[in-house]
Design a binder for these strands. Structure first.
Lengths: 334, 334
DNA sequence: GTGAAAGCGCTAACAA
DNA sequence: TTGTTAGCGCTTTCAC
């Protein structure tokens, strides 16, 4: 690999001149400029970003700390980040964490050593140890598909509570009254709790229901867990007409159980999901769901990081992107 | 951010001593070693990987050049790479390319500037310009889910032609005789052509069929394209009993069309997919398919890179990981 | 307009 | 065992 010295030698100029044609070409007389350009071409020279980074204190690289990249939701967000990053000249170091605290810590440490310009922290609540690391690193952090109400950290996500409220309201508008929910774990303060809360509030407002306890199953955000939860729900609430699932994957699990029981969706029971993953368009029936603009969340996250790097002001610390209901074939009017 | 000088000053030793306690602690007397460790702790010091990289000529970072990370297949492979990378102390810079040549080139250029230790090149054929860049970068390149028969580049993938052959043979063993295929584009030499060829060979061997022209639709690897292709196939071949789809997404498209036509899978028509994406377990009916060990492909790719970096010999340049048929509910015996 | 020299943070001889 | 010094490849004063 050739260095700036090789170029300088070949063009018969000093290394500072080479540096100048790369960074401020006008400050070099055309004749030399051409000679240097020629030499750069001949050698296939490319500047070493490590050396540059050492000086500029900037690497044009950000870290993305993610529980599970093989999750469709995360992958879509990452794509948005990457695409916007590409436009802004930023790269992404991907860190899969499995949600393990020790692995998150190790990843944050490495990212810091690699002098990333910023960190995207995804889908997990920000606990004390993470926040402390953010502090000592003193580089921009943006929370993606998560937020912190206790720390002053910028975030991008949808308004989960409201989205959930809207989902239930939609079901009610379609004439449903006996509605159940397959919720995520209540201990999950990012996606579990708020979606449950939205459901509860909508039950009160739309259905005049004070207590919803027996209409809800709290299970992990997984297909199989939802499959089993659906089974319990159908036993418990015989005249059920609709189910709100806290994720699309869960909705598929619920539909699958219904199918196994010989019940038709949406003829016998309506199902609405949450996320709007691509698979919702490929399922039978096609899934009615609450869209989260995942790709856009990723793009905006990268833009926020950019603003932070430029010390541009943020319009709002916590950014909520709009959600909306995508009507497909899994919900019918009753 | 504190530097090695700050630590040295605080511990009242020279910077080389600090460097030593980080890289060869035994070479420092315990007393000083402790003092240095204390100082490191107090300051929260972490070495600057850029400075290190400049010296070691190694960044412990690899680049992953991928057409579309939001693709379930790619995401699973990347997860395998990341997990193995984490075990080996390597990080991954993710480069989404949309398959655009100019974007691939730009990404390769940046990766080179950032001095990555290796490159994973995924799912696309290696054309002349890419190969030339690989040459001039002179860093290890591993082809993932693609291979080159013309260049001497290490690769990891399944044996697509054989996997496809096995899929058809499986259908034949289940008693099917009137079988069609929804193939990828024939111009796609990575996944399109070989899977078609395997189908053709198996038709000859298992069905005594010399020509398969009218039994095959060549369309993009997409849900919608497969949906439409299935429609054409069903019109053209009325007594069809089974369809082999070159990807799981395609299989879902085909099943969807069949469903819209009021045909039952597998009762009326059997469908077999290819990939074994997670969604195959969530569809109705659950998809019978040819498994590609995507996660393992990712892991192995990272291991191959590791060997290359250590100049360890590779057992074989082109590594084919085993595929197998996953029997679920979309194929029946006739 | 250009080159020499200092320095980004670190490691690795080389002396002491 | 330790400190001093010379770089790694680059940018940026500062003279000329």
């Amino acid at each position: 690999m050739s260095t700036i010295r090789d170029v300088a030698r070949l063009a018969d100029v000093s290394i500072s001149t080479v540096s100048r044609v790369m960074n401020a070409p006008e400050s070099v007389v055309p004749e030399k400029r051409e000679r240097v350009r020629q030499a750069i071409d001949d050698l296939g020279y490319r500047p070493n970003a490590l050396a540059r980074g050492l000086i500029y204190k900037e690497t044009r690289t950000a870290g993305a700390v993610i529980p599970d990249i093989s999750n469709l939701y995360a992958a879509e967000v990452v794509k948005g980040m990457e695409d916007m990053g590409h436009a802004l000249g930023m790269n992404l170091i991907l860190c899969n964490t499995d949600g393990s605290e020790s692995r998150i810590i190790r990843n944050l440490t490495v990212l810091r050593e690699k002098q990333v310009d910023g960190i995207f922290f995804m889908s997990k609540p920000v606990t004390e140890p993470y926040y402390e690391m953010f502090q000592t690193m003193k580089i921009p952090v943006v929370l993606v598909a998560t937020e912190s109400l206790v720390y002053e950290l910028p975030s991008v996500k949808v308004h989960d509570e409201q989205a959930s409220y809207d989902a239930l309201t939609y079901l009610v508008a379609k004439g449903h009254r006996r509605i159940a929910m397959i919720s995520g774990p209540i201990g999950d303060t990012v996606a579990g709790l708020p979606r449950y809360k939205g459901f509860k509030r909508a039950c009160r407002d739309g259905l005049g229901l004070a207590k919803v306890g027996d209409r809800v199953e709290f299970v992990p955000f997984k297909y199989q867990a939802a499959y089993e939860a659906m089974s319990r729900l159908i036993d418990r609430i015989p005249d059920l007409t609709a189910v709100f699932c806290a994720s699309d994957e869960m909705a598929l699990g619920a539909i699958s159980l219904l199918y196994d029981l010989g019940l038709r969706v949406p003829d016998d029971i309506s199902v609405i999901g949450f996320d709007n993953l691509k698979i919702g368009r490929m399922s039978i029936p096609k899934l009615t769901t609450v869209e989260q603009p995942m790709y856009e969340i990723g793009r905006q996250a990268m833009q926020i990081l950019q603003k932070l790097r430029n010390s541009d002001p943020l319009e709002q610390l916590r950014l909520y992107l709009p959600h909306r209901i995508i009507e497909r074939d899994s919900v019918r009017a009753v």
